[in-house]
Amino acid sequence: MNKYNILIVEDEFINAQFIEKAILKLGHNIIDSVETGQEALEVINEETIHIIFMDINLEGNMDGISCAKKINERSNIPIIYTTAFSDSQTIKEATDTNLFGYLIKPFDYHDIEAVLNLTIKQNYLKKQVISSKKTTAFTQLNKGYKYYPETKTLLKDEALVQLSKKESSIFYHLFTHLNQTVSSEYLNEYVWNNKRISPSTVRDSILRLRKKVPDLSIKTISGFGYILEKP
C-alpha cells in the first residue's frame, strides 16, 4: 500500500487527535497538525504534502476555505474539509477549491477511512485523465504552462490547474483569441450566455483567474476588454 503524507489543519485538539490516530491506523504519514491557515501555508512551503484535512471554521484571520484558495494558487493538493456546518452556501464556496471530500462533525473512524480512500482513488483517476489528455494537441505557454484547448485542460509543470467552470470558459476564450483583445460583452455572451450581470462580475472572475495563473499575462485593456499575451 502506498503511504501518503497528510497535513491536518484543525483548531480543536480533540478532533485533530482523532483524525491523526485514524490516519496512522490506516498506515499513512502525519507530516504536521496545525491550528491556523498561516501555519498550514508555511508547512506547504517546506514539506511534500499529498492530502490535507482542513477544518472550515478555523479561528484567526483566515478560515479553511480562504486557506485552501491560497494553497490552490501554488499547488493542487486534494483537500478534505471537516466542519460542523452543511449549509448550501458553505458547500458552494468549498467546491471552488480543490475539494475531494467532506466530513460533517461528529464523524467516526469509518467516515475518515471512507473519505480518505475515496480521495486517494479520485486523485489517482484524475492523474490518469491528465495523462490521457496529453495525447491531444496542446500549446506550450510560458512559465511551464500547457493548454489543451480540445479538453480545456490547463497544466502547470504537468500538474492540473484547478479552474471553476466559469474560469475555464473565460480562459478558453482568451486563449482562442491569443494576443487579441476580448471584450467584456463577448465574455458576457459566450461565458454567461447573455445573462444580466454587472460589470464587476466579469472583472472579479478575471481577478480570480489571474490569481490561479500568476505567471501568465492576462491584461486589462481599459475601455476595451482583456487579453492573454504569449511572447
Rank of each mutant, 00 (worst) to 15 (best):
S132K: 13
Y148R: 07
L99G: 09
N57E: 07
H177C: 02
Y145M: 09
N15P: 06
D96Q: 15
T151D: 08
K165H: 12
K3F: 06
V129M: 13
K3I: 08
H173R: 07
L116A: 00
P214G: 06
S183L: 10
I79H: 06
T151L: 04
P106S: 10
F138Q: 06
T136K: 03
D215V: 03
N61I: 11
N123C: 01
E10Q: 09
E189Q: 10
C67I: 03
M1E: 12
C67K: 00
T95H: 15
K166S: 14
I30Q: 03
A137Y: 14
K211M: 12
Y148S: 09
Y81R: 07
G223C: 08
K21P: 08
I30W: 12
E150T: 11
I14D: 11
N15Y: 14
T90N: 14
L24A: 10
G223M: 09
Y102C: 02
Q38E: 06
K21W: 12
I19A: 03
K146A: 01
K156T: 04
V43L: 11
T82Y: 11
D32T: 01
S205M: 13
I206S: 05
Y190R: 10
S168G: 11
D215S: 10
T201D: 12
D157F: 08
E20G: 12
S217I: 12
Y124T: 02
L174W: 02
G27W: 06
I120M: 07
T48N: 14
Y190P: 08
N45Y: 14
R210H: 07
I112D: 03
K21E: 15
I23Y: 02
I77F: 13
L116V: 04
R196G: 11
A22P: 09
L99P: 07
Y226E: 01
L125D: 05
L228R: 01
K211F: 03
K133S: 03
Q17R: 10
L24D: 08
L207D: 09
I120C: 07
I14T: 12
Y81G: 02
L207S: 11
S183T: 13
F175Q: 09
